[in-house]
């Protein structure tokens, strides 16, 4: 820039620093994205649930004195031509006990569609104590035209969940993720081999 080179050195230094600050703040805007995820993971905010394994669950004692109601709900977001609903609306569980629940999904279109379920747990303070050992939401789900599938989630409510929480709602929103996995050919047959590869366990 010729205009800048004519500037006195004091101006040039200051301009350089200010422009640097502008780029730094532009970068900071993008840095907020991973920071946000980290913050939510640490605090369990935003209904993001945790993962655990069955060995840990077996080692945890079951709180026989307490019952917690777990409600199930789910919906297919617009753009996903599926019917999606829980098999039961709610169940009573004991903290520490591994529990299995199912959802039913049916592809109402005439082609294979890939979707992914995004879980959310309310109230927020329960989310950190709601852990899954297995979930259809861990991976992409493929349904052929007209196919109906039962989908399983196995979860445990940790015994250290605050006493004030008596009811937990587990909600799934199923999204069409064709555009995020379109680089691979989608057929239901390939589903099993692909499961872990597309989104390996991220944010389940």
């Amino acid at each position: 820039m010729t205009a800048a080179t004519q500037q006195p050195p004091a101006n040039r230094r200051l301009i350089f620093r200010l422009v640097l600050a502008v780029f730094a703040m532009f970068g900071f805007g993008f840095a907020l994205v991973p920071l946000y995820d980290v913050f939510c993971d640490i605090t369990g905010l935003n209904g993001k649930t945790g993962v655990t394994d069955s060995r840990t669950v077996e080692a945890t004692p079951i709180d026989k004195d307490r019952w917690v109601t777990v409600e199930f709900t789910g919906n297919a977001a617009s753009g996903l031509p599926w019917e999606f609903r829980p098999t039961v609306a709610k169940m009573e569980v004991q903290p520490g006990a591994l529990t299995r629940a199912t959802y039913i999904a049916r592809n109402t279109s005439n082609r294979t569609v890939v979707g992914r379920a995004i879980p959310s747990v309310t109230p927020g303070e329960a989310a950190a104590h709601f852990k899954k050992t297995e979930c259809f939401c861990f991976t992409e789900q493929y349904l052929d035209a007209g196919e109906t599938k039962e989908m399983t989630v196995q979860f445990v409510v940790e015994p250290d969940i605050p006493r004030s929480v008596n009811t937990i709602t587990l909600s799934y929103a199923f999204f069409n993720t064709e555009k995020f996995v379109k680089q691979k050919k989608i057929t239901a047959k390939q589903q099993d081999t692909k499961l872990e590869k597309t989104h390996p366990g991220k944010k389940s």
């Binding site: 703040m25 532009f26 970068g27 900071f28 805007g29 993008f30 977001a77 995004i118 995020f180």
Partner: peptide
């Protein structure tokens, strides 16, 4: 610059298959 950043994310979400704001 933060505003510029966030509308840029909108733009890439709209056209370049990023998923800053898309839970899917």
């Amino acid at each position: 610059p933060v505003l510029a950043g966030v509308v840029t994310m909108l733009l890439t979400d709209r056209h370049f298959d990023t998923a800053f704001f898309n839970p899917a």
